[in-house]
Amino acid sequence: MSARTSGPGRKTLASVERLSFRYPDSARAAVRDVTLEVGEGEVVLLAGPSGCGKSTLLRCINGLIPHMYHGEYQGRVVVGGLEVAKTPMSTLSENVGFLFQNPENQIFMFSVERDVAFGLQNLSVPREEMRTRVDEAMRLLGVSNLATRAPHELSDGQKQRTALAGVVAMRPRLVILDEPTSLLDPKTALEVAELIGRLNRELGITFIIVEHRLELLVPLAHRLVVMEGGSKVLDGAPEEVLSDPRVESYGVNVPPISRLYTSLARDGIRLPRNPSTPEELAQEINDL
């Protein structure tokens, strides 16, 4: 996994403007006055304790809120120039892909290739083009050899890659991942993280990712956003946010390398920046 390069001057792909949302059966807002801009090609990590509004915010960005879930909606979300609240889900689905936590619940068909084609079928993509896009997505996600397998014949990692292939085949500019590695073992989780990095680098796909195992995805991320109680409380480069003394109080699971960086700083050993991989840490210590 290579370290990311931050991208100043990126064109805005998604913007959330003073968004608040309250579910009808809830006394308080799940998302409160959140403003967020996501640049083209960026990987944005969203962190925070359970119930802080991360998943609600993601659903506001892909349009499930307000199209599927109704409630008190204030503010504006724009993705790729389309105002989410005023654009039908079918149009949004070509711009925003969504990978849910449990891949089992988003594989509909009986074979991998037919499931990858599911979204394209719904968009009435002609058969020849569909074939090309399905093959391309399966190749990118490394599931071509599983094309005719049934979902119950796949491992959890293979299911996650199949579900992601189904999203990628629709060629969205922005892909939202809601805890994509939470049900995976460490090795498979690392493989999925590497895939995300490759899709970002090779296809320029923008990602917004909710993830608790930050050590997996911090090396890929351009930004880390922390939420608490429905509000955005920290937003910046991952190394800056993870060095913030308040970050742990917001329930963020700080990666061990960032802990070590903070601990070294406390003891007077100042590294030039908060490293995201053991290799970066070794390099920085070497350069001292």
Binding site: R59, M68, F98, G119, L123
Partner: peptide
């Protein structure tokens, strides 16, 4: 949710 996100029902004649 997953069906909506993958455009289910967006066209009366899916391919």
């Amino acid at each position: 949710e997953a069906m909506e996100s993958r455009a289910y029902g967006s066209t009366p004649r899916p391919t």
